[in-house]
Design a protein around this nucleic acid. Structure first.
Lengths: 144, 144
DNA sequence: ATACCTGCAAAGGCTTTGCGGTTCG
DNA sequence: CGAACCGCAAAGCCTTTGCAGGTAT
C-alpha cells in the first residue's frame, strides 16, 4: 500500500474513532512511515522537532502508543536500550545489529507453519529476529 | 545436559576465569536452571531471598549479566515490562503470552537457513517468537 | 593477604502521568 | 462550545553504579 494512502487511511480512522487530527499526530505517523530504520521514540521526536520545534517528547510517546493500539505500528523490542517502532505492516522479519541495535526489515521465505493451538496457547502470529553485525559495525570491529 | 553438570560446569568456568564462587552467584544460576518460565530479575531475586534473605537486587542484576557474558544465560526481551532470563542453551524458540508476558520454550522444526552474509550483515543466529494467549489468559479473556 | 564480591543507597535512563492551557471539530 | 490534545514538569519503573565493608582463594 502506498504511503499516501496509509496516511489517508490513518486520518480516516482517526475521524471514525473520534480522535483529533493534529499536526503532531500526523507528523509522527508520516515520519514513521518514511523511516525504514525503525526509529526510537527519541529519534522520531528529533524529526518532528524539525517541523514543530515546540513538540514535546511526551506527545511522541502518546502518539506511538495510539498508533500501536490502532495496529498501524509495532513496538519492536530488542535487548537493552529503548524501544523502536515499525510502521511496516507487511509480513516481514528483522535483521538486528547486536552492536548498535540497528534494525532492518528483511523479506525471506520461511515455511514456518504455526498451528492455531500450540501447547495450550492460542497463537496469533510470530516474528523472526536474525542477529548479527551490520555493515558499519562489522568494519569497526573486524574480528571477534 | 543435566542440570547438576551445568552447575558444575559453571563453577569450573568461574574458577578458570578467576571469578569467586559465592553462594549468591550459585543460587542465581541454580534458580535460573530450574525455572522453565524465564523469570524476571525480580522473580529470581524473590527466590534467592528465600535462601539468603539479605541478598540485594543489585547482586542479582550483576549475576545475570555475568551469566550472559559467559554465554550461560540469555536475556529474553519482550514488549514492555522488564527483561527475562533463560538458561536453556539448546536451540529452541519462544511462545509468548501477549497478555501476561509469560514465556514458554518450544521445540518446533524450522527449516530456516540463514546465510552467513545477509544484506551486508554478518549473521550470528536467530530466534523465533510466537505470540498468543497462554492457557490461563485465554480463559480469563474468552473472546476479543 | 588481596582480589573480588556484596549490600546499600543514590543516580541514571526511558517512559508515563497530572495539570492547566490550547486546539480541533 | 466541548471534548480531545498538547507542553511542561514531576513522578514512576527498571537498571546501573559508587562506595565501604565482607568473603573466597
Amino acid at each position: 500500500m502506498l504511503k499516501e494512502d496509509r496516511l489517508e487511511g490513518f486520518i480516516e480512522r482517526c475521524r471514525q474513532a473520534g480522535l483529533k487530527i493534529t499536526p503532531q499526530r500526523v507528523a509522527v505517523y508520516e515520519i514513521l512511515l518514511n523511516s525504514p530504520h525503525h526509529p526510537t521514540v527519541e529519534e522520531i521526536y528529533e524529526e518532528v522537532k524539525k517541523r514543530y520545534p515546540f513538540v514535546s517528547l511526551a506527545t511522541v510517546y502518546r502518539t506511538v502508543e495510539t498508533l500501536e493500539q490502532m495496529g498501524l505500528a509495532k513496538k519492536v523490542c530488542y535487548w537493552g536500550s529503548s524501544a523502536r517502532y515499525d510502521a511496516n505492516t507487511e509480513e516481514h522479519h528483522h535483521l538486528i545489529c547486536v552492536r548498535c541495535g540497528a534494525i532492518k526489515d528483511i523479506y525471506i521465505e520461511d515455511s514456518l507453519s504455526i498451528p492455531k493451538e500450540l501447547e495450550g496457547f492460542r497463537t496469533e502470529g510470530y516474528s523472526v529476529n536474525i542477529y548479527g553485525l551490520c555493515p558499519s559495525c562489522k568494519s569497526a570491529q573486524p574480528d571477534t
